[in-house]
Design a protein around this nucleic acid. Structure first.
Lengths: 69, 69
DNA sequence: GTGTGACTTCGAGTCCGTT
DNA sequence: GAACGGACTCGAAGTCACA
């Protein structure tokens, strides 16, 4: 089973760095806690669809895009 | 804001019907409760990433594919 | 065969801190 | 700036009876 938490983590981190943001910046922009962002990027969290949508919007991509390998 | 719960619901229902399955069939194959499947298809639930992965695998698609418009 | 409201339980998500 | 831990709150997970 492919680990989609890891895939999501990689994609979030890449998209965030593309924007030149720190985790704290992304936390502020999304309104999501910074420790939670950290957990998502490390692949240890299991976020809800609403979270994926928030992240995707802020990172200027789509939920679908965040889950592509 | 596009409603990704509805998008997911539409895609799950379409993929399920493509396989000629009832909600009960899908519930059995995924191990998820039938009423929970119903809630996802109607867009009233906010499923986690792990749920999306389970559904995608059983429906022979990908989490990313389930979130495309 | 599906929609729906109500319910309990446990993990999603927040907030504080330290390394 | 980021990883990690503890304690907390609230909503997702999971189930049921009934329409």
């Amino acid at each position: 089973m492919e680990n989609y938490r890891k895939i999501l983590g990689r994609n979030v981190r890449a998209a965030r760095k593309d924007l030149g943001w720190s985790q704290e910046d992304l936390a502020f922009e999304t309104g999501i806690d910074r420790t939670y962002i950290s957990g998502i990027e490390r692949g240890v969290r299991n976020p809800s669809l609403d979270m994926l949508v928030k992240l995707a919007k802020t990172l200027k991509t789509t939920p679908s895009g965040l889950l592509e390998k």
